[in-house]
Amino acid sequence: MNGQIVIDGMTSGAMIGLGAIGVTLTYGLLRFANFAHGEFATWGAYIALVLASLLGTLLGGADGTIGDLTFGWHLLVALAGSMVLTALLALALDSVLFRRLRRHGSGMVLVIASFGASLALRSLLEFGFTGQPQYYSREIAMTVAIAPGMRATLDQLVVLGVAVALMAGTHLMLTHTALGRAMRATSENPDLARLAGIDVADVVRTTWLLGGAMAAAAGVFLGVTVQLRPTMGFELLLPLFAAAILGGIGSVPGAMAGGMIIGIAEAAAVPIAGAQYRAAVAFVVLLVVLLIKPTGLFGARER
């Protein structure tokens, strides 16, 4: 395997890992697969696009660039704003749809509802922005040699760094704060969590906010390194689930490792098998790992 595959795979793997955080946490807590999660990434990307152009209009000038990156601080501000707004979108989707269905419906009803939500969210974006690809910037991405035979764009390196920092931050929050402990406890045993004085509804809300924010970051990073399309998050969905299951449901380090493995495997498959088989790779890797370790790499519990 050459170095280029590793760096390209890690960049997309970091985005998959970020998106998979929400999948793994909501699945671990609410025991349902949210197929609308990919749309949080898409919405995150487009919200940032709108915020960045609003900033440009307000300040009377397009975004500059930071150093040799293709984007400037407008996009960084837009990223933060988009993470907040997408977190609220995830929370809103839970309160208008999933929370009501959780009270009565079965797991299957929730999954189908999430399919519907996914379709609705995606169609709204197609309506507003057409199906044409959009870009945050028209600048040419500069590449640097980081090792013999290994080149990366500066954008890739920054995205990789920020994504890993966000995942590490999430992991530290879960392992070292009272809120994180409460989240892990509730995911493991909601009834005992209640008995220990944890307000489970609060934990559920926090989980949606966190998952939505991380998905938004994944979407923005995908927009920076590739492009924005209304189907970008939907196409990310299978790798997200593969990464979450591969890493072990409920595990943030697992989502991160799973994302990296899927990302690198996909990048490696393209020169070997051709780009049309890229999507199948996530499945193959997932099957192999599940045959060896059914709970996933970092998973403690059977599901």
Binding site: A178, R181, A182, R184, A185, E188, N189, L192, A193, A196, G197, I198, A300, R301
Partner: peptide, 13 residues
Amino acid sequence: FAGLTVADNLAIA
């Protein structure tokens, strides 16, 4: 909470 340490179980309490 089986997945948490003894110390974390008490800390939650």
